[in-house]
Design a protein around this nucleic acid. Structure first.
Length: 972
DNA sequence: GCAAGGACGTA
DNA sequence: GTACGTCCTTGCA
């Protein structure tokens, strides 16, 4: 008999750390260890032939309950960190794999795998058999027999070493300096920090081996402890005699486990293709499948992937995405199928994290270099740290760093105060630096390597803010996760703030910064908060961030959002941080001149309006204007807003002006001019940063339902362009001296995306041939040749094309074109007849949103519509239109996000110096050295045009137009 | 001091 | 008809 015992649990942990590349299957589930495990199994079957061929075989796992060792020593394995996130879902899968290979899969409550292995090995040896233990765990080395009847085999792949490495008595001696039967004595003396076996302090492996070789056993050693010459060693042994005895009990493997399966039941069974291939296919292990099919001479195509394990493309019905995954898991269980391990894992994580208590008393304040260094060591050991910067303001371009908090796990926290002011918060008192704070420069020097280290994962909430801030302090950050972007990838802009996330996921009230800082006149900055309160607030933030990460990260795999997050959202944040940091140059003089001009002209219109109205009134008040027009002047055709006030929108006034009401014209003109002043010529200069002399917008990556960015403080995505006066504002956006601006914009990106998604051949052909798409549409619809087409005809077709993208309705189109609703309805009907695919697309989205509660972009971004089945008809119609628009707008947004992520490395690769400054939905603005425009533009175009590839192969050409000039108006 | 509503700038 | 952010007035605290 030859018994092969595989240490399954040991394999998983060691393989995880030995195999850096983590393969994932298509739903994002990490399966690297499962893959390694399967590879090992079939290689063992292949390599152990002839005299080494096992007749009996089993894979042994730890059971996750307590063992007898916990009763002996309550600290046993207490230092073990929780299993890595990526590893947890793989535990059940490795057991699945074992059964798929038709091998006995053994675990037993109350016993470690090692004890079960020892028991079977002992039984087999007594029966005169040979035993091979597949493991590299030194704890098992005590079982090795010098006569070769029990050997170990190390199969963990290691570079530069043979795939199978036998461990016999010689190898054990090399490791412990004693024969295998003395291994437990040595282990008991020197202890094991990993398992938290205490041992005798001050005694390492070498000393232990010397002592055991001299005295044979621990008991004999302790009996003769007086003979030991070295004073310190003798005393240590005396003092810790009991610890040594306990340690020996801990390291000694039980050989009498009441195993449930007899040895004979472990007899090897032939591989059954019906068990094997459904598993391998569900894991998407194509290579292993092929190899094994060849080895056992079976056709894998005869089997389908195991549905309980296979990746699933979409989530089920519902509103909340997590609830959807839950519902799917429940249904699968009701059908007698196991829930997907990733789903189970995500749910368990959530429950586990919610159960962890809060204890702010354990948070630490790092007052000096020593305590910071100690925490840095903690961070290195953990490999993962949630971190948060506290500053004096919401704008990371101007705010000062006040402190940094860290958490290495739920319930842990440390705060490093750096810029707190002395005094009681009174701006006249103190003003100096508060006591108990490290020097900022010294602290950052210590932290720089931590932030830069790629092997340490830094978890932020809104990483863009911290990245931009830290960059100003010369701190580079690598390897990040971002709970805000995790939440956005999973649930959209539903939850934005830490407080909302904490409330929803952790069931605790999120902290309010307002309580700490106050509001209004008496508001202080974070620098004025006392360090103790600041520490509590900051640590709680980092702690919450860590907890949220533990809950949200596993949901990525469970809900198929890993790719979106890892290839789009996470990499984009640092790109945006850099764009915000660069800012753009704005010419004060130009704006000042414009402002003066606009003010004069506005004043004239205001005087004229007062004259025409017969009295003075506030032109800025729609209420007063409405009363004058419709109550006092009794003009016809006034409509009311939903709150009952008179409508005085531009379209209404334009209408009145057409009908000969000069007051309406004057107000329209006044509004335009004052709008330009208030929002642009007067407001923009206040945003010029005193240090950089440039305007730095803040992008929001997580606010828009469809996946677009938004821009605020100031909004640089709504700088005027449509009117002549408006365009003048763009001339104030200028290149720095010696530089040139380049504007590159996607041409008709949304219509092209529509043509692709809805698969409209006529549209695709038109784009392929580079036709005027609106003229082509008009020609198709109205039968008018493109040559010599009246501009009004083209204008209508253009409005219809836009209408389609917006989820057209006869009402809206009629409004837009100023035509009868019935005529608009006829246009739409004609359009659908000409392009029947569009109708199908729209019906599909409507159906999907009602059924699933969401629609998707071509890159897998989900857009949620909780009200899809609202009882309110208007709301339902709104959702229908939005669900038609969202995949179009969102796919275009995904494309430009991908372009932005790739742009900087591509430019660098091509040796082109170009700074990406702004994004305006379908346009990117760059600043390049004068004279390099011609070199930069083709590269920029190429990256933008190819941005969908290779993830999505678009069936329409994408076209980007680029222009260079000294100012934005000229470049556009 | 703040929230809501109306109006209007962009894609 | 889609998606945003900002300014101003109004009304209430």
């Amino acid at each position: 008999m030859h018994l092969l015992l595989v240490d399954g649990s040991g394999y998983i942990f060691r393989a995880f750390h030995a195999l850096p590349q983590l393969s994932r299957k298509s739903d994002g589930l990490p399966v690297g260890c499962v893959q390694g495990f399967c590879n090992m199994l079939w290689k063992l079957m292949e390599d152990l032939k002839g005299e080494d061929e096992p007749t009996h075989m089993a894979v042994i796992f730890d059971h996750s309950a307590k063992t007898f060792r916990d009763d002996i020593y309550d600290q046993y394995k207490a230092q073990r960190p929780p299993a890595p996130e990526e590893l947890v879902p793989q535990f059940p899968l490795v057991r699945h794999a074992t059964r798929a290979f038709n091998i006995a899969c053994i675990e037993q409550e109350g016993w470690e795998a090692d004890d079960i292995i020892a028991t079977y090995a002992c039984q087999a040896k007594s029966a005169g058999g040979k035993v091979t233990i597949v493991s590299s765990d030194k704890d098992l080395m005590q079982l090795v027999e010098p006569d070769g009847s029990i050997r170990m085999l190390d199969t963990i792949p290691r570079p530069g070493q043979p795939p199978l490495r036998w461990i016999g008595a010689d190898e054990v001696f090399a490791k412990f300096g004693v024969t295998p039967d003395k291994v437990i004595e040595v282990q008991a003396l020197c202890g094991d920090s990993v398992d938290n076996v205490p041992g005798v302090p001050g005694i390492g492996v070498k000393t232990a081996a010397d002592l055991i070789n001299q005295y044979g056993t621990i008991e004999n050693l302790l009996d003769h402890v007086d003979d030991i010459k070295q004073n310190a060693r003798r005393e240590k042994l005396r003092e810790n005699a009991e610890l040594a005895r306990i340690s020996k009990q801990l390291v000694t493997l039980a050989q009498d486990v009441p195993v449930e399966l007899e040895l004979s039941a472990l007899q090897r069974q032939p591989v059954e293709p019906g068990k094997l291939f459904p598993f391998l296919k569900a894991m998407e292990f194509a290579t292993i499948t092929k190899r094994l099919a060849g080895l056992i001479g079976a056709d894998p195509d005869a089997w389908e992937p195991d549905p309980a394990l296979a990746a699933q493309p979409a989530s089920p019905v519902g509103f909340d995405n997590a609830a959807r995954a839950e519902a799917r898991a429940a249904r699968q269980q009701a059908q007698g199928r196991d829930a997907l391990p990733v789903v189970v894992h995500a749910r368990e994580q959530h429950e586990k994290v919610r159960a962890i208590p809060w204890n702010p008393d354990t948070y630490e304040v790092l007052e000096d270099a020593r305590s910071l260094q100690r925490w840095i060591e903690v961070i290195y050991r953990s490999g993962i740290v949630a971190t948060d910067t506290e500053t004096t303001g919401l704008d990371n371009q101007t705010a000062d760093l006040v402190g940094i908090s860290f958490s290495v796990g739920p319930g842990t926290g440390a705060y490093l105060p750096l810029g707190h002011h002395a005094g009681d918060g009174d701006i006249f008192g103190g003003g100096g630096k508060a006591e108990g704070q490290m020097d900022l420069g010294e602290a950052l020097d210590l932290l720089r390597p931590v932030f830069a280290d790629r092997s340490i994962l830094k978890i932020f909430h809104n990483s863009k803010y911290d990245l931009g801030l830290l960059r100003r302090y010369g701190v580079e950050v690598n390897s990040i996760d971002d709970t805000l972007l995790l939440s956005y990838s999973l649930d959209g802009p539903q939850f934005n703030t830490m407080a909302e996330l904490a409330d929803h996921w952790l069931g605790v009230p999120g902290q309010s910064i307002k309580e700490l800082l106050g509001t209004g006149k008496s508001q202080k900055t974070f620098a004025e908060v006392d360090i103790a309160s600041a520490a509590r607030y900051a640590c709680e933030d980092a702690d919450m961030t860590f907890r949220l990460w533990r809950i949200l990260k596993p949901r990525l795999a469970a809900e198929n959002m890993t790719t979106l997050y890892e290839t789009i959202e996470r990499p984009l944040a640092p790109v945006l941080a850099r764009m915000e940091g660069r800012g753009i140059s704005v010419d004060r003089q130009i704006l000042a001149r414009l402002s003066g001009d606009f003010a004069q002209r506005a004043a004239a219109f205001e005087a004229e309006a007062h004259e025409l109205a017969g009295r003075k009134f506030n032109l800025g008040s729609p209420k007063q204007l409405g009363e004058i027009l419709f109550d006092e002047m009794k003009l016809e055709g006034g409509t009311r807003t939903k709150t009952g006030a008179w409508s005085t929108g531009a379209d209404v006034l334009e209408d009145l002006a057409q009908k000969g009401v000069p007051l309406a014209r004057a107000v329209v003109e006044w509004r335009q001019l004052t709008k330009l002043m208030g929002t642009y010529t007067d407001a923009l200069p206040t945003y010029i940063n005193a240090h950089t002399g440039r305007v730095h917008t803040t992008y929001s990556q997580h606010s828009v339902l469809t996946g677009r960015l938004s821009s605020n403080d100031p909004n640089l995505q709504n700088i005027p362009v449509r009117t002549e006066d408006g365009r003048k504002i763009r001339t104030a956006f200028v290149a720095a001296p010696g530089k040139t601006l380049i504007s590159a914009d996607y041409s008709q990106i949304e219509l092209r995306v529509l043509a692709h998604i809805a698969d409209i051949q006529a549209l695709k052909d038109a784009f392929e041939e580079g036709l005027d798409i609106h003229a082509m549409t008009a020609s198709e619809m109205f039968g008018v040749p493109v040559e010599g087409m009246p501009s009004e005809v083209r204008r209508r077709a253009k409005a219809i094309n836009f209408g389609i993208i917006y989820g057209i309705s006869a009402f809206g189109l009629a409004n837009q074109l100023g035509i009868e609703r019935s005529v608009a309805g006829d246009y739409i009907k004609t359009y659908f007849e000409r392009f029947p695919g569009i109708k199908d697309y729209m019906d599909n989205q409507r159906r999907r949103v009602k059924q699933d509660g969401y629609v998707m972009t071509i890159f897998g971004r989900k857009i949620n519509f909780p009200n899809a089945n609202s009882s309110h008809a208007a709301e339902r119609s709104f959702v229908e239109r939005a669900s038609i628009n969202a995949p179009i707008q969102g796919s275009a947004a995904d494309i430009i996000r991908r372009a932005m992520i790739r742009m900087e490395p591509e430019l660098e690769r091509e040796g082109i110096e170009a700074d990406m400054l702004l994004q305006v939905h379908d346009e990117l603005i760059f600043e390049v050295p004068e004279g390099t425009e011609e070199a930069a533009m083709p590269v920029i175009k190429r990256v933008m045009e190819g941005a969908a590839e290779p993830a999505v192969r678009l069936t329409v050409p994408i076209q980007v137009d680029a222009h260079a000039a000294k100012d934005w108006d000229g470049a556009h």
